[in-house]
Amino acid sequence: MLKDIEHPLQKYIRPGTNYTTCPGCGNGILAQSTLRAIKNLELDFDNIVFVSGIGCAGWIPSPSFNTDVLHVTHGRAIAYATGVKLTNPKLKVVVFSGDGDLSAIGGNHFIHAARRNIDLTVICVNNRIYGMTSGQAAPTTPKNSKTTTTPYGNMENTFDLSDLAKSAGATFVARWTTYHARQLTKSIAKAIDKKGFSFIEAISQCPVHYGKVIGMRNDAPSMMKEFKSKSIHINKIDSLSNESSDDKIIVGELVNENEKAELTDLMQSLRTEVGTDG
């Protein structure tokens, strides 16, 4: 009997794939939230292209999502996605990136895509560590954290990825944690639906390689409970003193702007204006 019941998202999964994440990894929540968002939007899956780089987060769409997937080099997913989108603006193009992929090696592409306001949806799985390569420090690793490359504690300052996207010009920015699966689903749907550069930052757990350095080895539930207790909604932020907000994760929809022109639209108008021998 039970085997006759199909998971509501099964139709989006490429036959023959099985997920390869560690137990308790946040990537499964991101995969589900994204597919639920697409299901809720009733989008034609064949009309969506997923592009991802190298890192555990890159394996969320590739090869498992049963549509066009392009799995590229470390850090460059946004640059590849830019070529796909500019060439066929009718396609919805969604990028999955790890925090290292997006903000270390690929940081330049990230800020420039936001600046251009090209219609891409970028979902960053921010586990604040290099998961795939087993736990080195990332630009998102909290200060003083011990990692495999900061055995004395991380001396460097931490990037706020959502702030970065916002100042670079993104027209939709939302941050949630994997504890907020429902909110994530809603924001991902808005991001995909929105014409312009949309950025979703999902604070996520890597129970294996980050858990081990913060005393929560393989303990996803504790990591997620911590996300819950540290999260504060953007609308409630004014009531906090600066001091206490440092340790907080500000969640919610941080930017939702409608005025800015989008790049593929601008290019289409230009073609109409200057086109000669088509």
Binding site: V72, R76, G83, L86, H112
Partner: peptide, 23 residues
């Protein structure tokens, strides 16, 4: 743009070739 095509000046050459592959 005259021939119904696309031009983009990218942020570096890594992106140029990446965008060309995507295209």
């Amino acid at each position: 743009f005259q021939v119904n095509g696309t031009f983009i000046q990218t942020e570096d050459e890594l992106s140029s070739i990446a965008a060309v592959v995507g295209s």
